[in-house]
């Protein structure tokens, strides 16, 4: 199982093969289509992140000492970026998730999608992933005590 930095590098490598925006977006759309969907029953108000434009659902589970995320969006391009973020963050240790940054999104030419003014739910989603990780960290700490 690769760590967060290794997964970011993999993604940067994959995107470096593309010559233009169309190829990048086609790949992202494919990624969006292949994201494991959240079971409909988890698409609840509790799990939703409402952007003005698109909506994102995120569900977190604690497995061993890792946090596993599943996510979905009603817009396919948003879903593609969700897939990239999940690939980096899911299955990692909570403390690594909390520390991680998302600069690699700039490097692969998708910066505009993480703009706080874009209102697609992604910036809030990243905050939410970290909030879940933080919650598991404090839960772990209290269990150990």
């Amino acid at each position: 199982m690769s760590n967060i930095e290794e997964r970011k590098e993999e993604i940067i490598d994959e995107f470096s093969m593309f010559d233009d925006w169309m190829q990048r977006y086609e790949y992202m759309i494919d990624l969006g289509k292949s994201l494991p969907l959240i079971d409909e029953k988890y698409k609840t108000e509790d799990n939703i992140i409402k952007g003005c434009q698109s909506r994102v659902w995120v569900k977190a589970d604690h497995q061993d000492d890792k946090v596993v995320f599943k996510a979905d969006s009603d817009a396919i391009i948003t879903k593609g970026i969700v897939a990239i973020l999940i690939r980096v963050f899911s299955g990692q240790k909570p403390e690594d998730i909390v520390k991680a940054d998302t600069d690699f999104i700039d490097e692969i030419g998708l910066k505009e999608h993480l703009s706080p003014t874009r209102a697609n739910g992604l910036v809030s989603m990243i905050k939410q992933l970290k909030a879940y990780a933080l919650a598991y960290m404090s839960k772990d700490a209290s269990t150990q005590n």
Binding site: Y25, Q53, S54, A75, I76, I77, N120
Partner: peptide, 13 residues
Amino acid sequence: GLHSYDIGTLVDK
């Protein structure tokens, strides 16, 4: 079956 956000994002490109 398509979301307006996806259309808007692609044609903006």
